[in-house]
Computed example of a mutant assay.
Amino acid sequence: MTVLDTAIDLLRGRRIAVVTGAGISTDSGIPDYRGAGAPPRNPMLFETFLASADARRRYWAGSHLGWQRFAGVQPNEGHRALARLERAGLTTGIATQNVDDLHERAGSTNVTHVHGQLHTVSCLDCGTTFDRHRIADEIERLNSWIRMPERVRLQPDGDVEIDASQRFEVPACPVCGGILKPDVVFFGELVPVDVFAAARDIVAAGEVVLVAGSSLVVNSGTRLLEVARREDVPIVIVNRGPTKWDGRAAARVEGGTSESLSAIADALGAPA
């Protein structure tokens, strides 16, 4: 019996809580944070974003260009396999650490984005939320010269590293003129309490937890798995490369999420 067979046996007949990370989106062309070949990163810290107009200028220039490319990325077989499991009534939901909307675009409906999403922008002063397209149109109006550099690598959070010019003009809140920020959780920023509670409920409702494409290094992921561990709920991990919870998993599948999750969906009888 293979490890994948063991994982399938653990999942069969149980309500499955799903936790996903950046690794599930690599087959869609979005690199992960820590896997082999992951690009070096210098992520924006929340306190730096708040304190420095120059930092906000650098961030928004790269974020705007990255979002343009991010918006064209398509779901892969891993995303579609999880949507199949949901349609078959086998999952309690998906708690994802990703800021893309690929789960929803693949057909999943019960998805909690622990680290937020790129498709909305909020004002840190008045709290108004805007569709990202509206803010992108304003960026293009203010910075008609800006173009995507050649041979730039997309980052997992939809950013790109560029040498942003002082010419870049950051849009202000259309309502109050305050500071705008994409609705993603920056490094050094806390996950909103209600969002984490929704993710915790997904895990708590599961009789088994399926982790797909996460190294489980980030604190939010480990906190979710602690919910399962305290209740002696088995954990199945599918990932390329080691994870922080390998020693605690009931089954650990080394491999890509597209092929592994498709095989799991097939074995559990989830129709295509």
Results as ranks from 00 to 15, higher is better:
residue 1 M to S: 13
residue 3 V to W: 00
residue 6 T to A: 10
residue 10 L to T: 00
residue 11 L to N: 01
residue 11 L to D: 00
residue 18 V to H: 01
residue 26 T to H: 01
residue 30 I to E: 10
residue 31 P to C: 05
residue 36 A to E: 14
residue 40 P to G: 01
residue 41 R to K: 14
residue 47 E to F: 04
residue 52 S to Q: 09
residue 55 A to Q: 06
residue 61 A to G: 06
residue 61 A to V: 04
residue 62 G to F: 05
residue 64 H to N: 05
residue 64 H to F: 14
residue 66 G to R: 06
residue 67 W to H: 04
residue 72 G to I: 04
residue 73 V to K: 10
residue 78 G to S: 12
residue 82 L to K: 04
residue 87 R to A: 15
residue 94 I to K: 00
residue 96 T to V: 15
residue 99 V to S: 02
residue 99 V to A: 01
residue 101 D to C: 08
residue 104 E to I: 14
residue 104 E to H: 14
residue 105 R to A: 14
residue 106 A to H: 10
residue 107 G to D: 11
residue 108 S to E: 06
residue 108 S to K: 08
residue 114 V to H: 02
residue 115 H to I: 13
residue 116 G to Y: 07
residue 116 G to T: 14
residue 120 T to I: 08
residue 124 L to Q: 04
residue 134 R to F: 11
residue 139 I to N: 00
residue 141 R to E: 13
residue 143 N to S: 09
residue 150 E to T: 07
residue 155 Q to C: 07
residue 164 A to L: 04
residue 164 A to I: 02
residue 165 S to P: 00
residue 166 Q to T: 10
residue 169 E to G: 01
residue 177 G to Q: 05
residue 178 G to A: 12
residue 180 L to K: 03
residue 183 D to N: 15
residue 184 V to R: 04
residue 184 V to M: 11
residue 193 V to N: 04
residue 198 A to H: 11
residue 200 R to V: 03
residue 205 A to S: 11
residue 208 V to F: 02
residue 212 A to L: 07
residue 213 G to N: 08
residue 215 S to D: 09
residue 218 V to K: 03
residue 218 V to P: 02
residue 221 G to C: 09
residue 222 T to E: 08
residue 224 L to C: 13
residue 228 A to Y: 09
residue 231 E to S: 14
residue 233 V to W: 01
residue 242 P to K: 13
residue 244 K to N: 10
residue 245 W to V: 07
residue 247 G to V: 06
residue 251 A to S: 11
residue 252 R to N: 10
residue 253 V to H: 03
residue 253 V to F: 07
residue 253 V to A: 09
residue 254 E to N: 09
residue 255 G to I: 11
residue 256 G to V: 13
residue 265 A to Q: 09
residue 267 A to I: 11
residue 268 L to V: 10
residue 269 G to T: 14
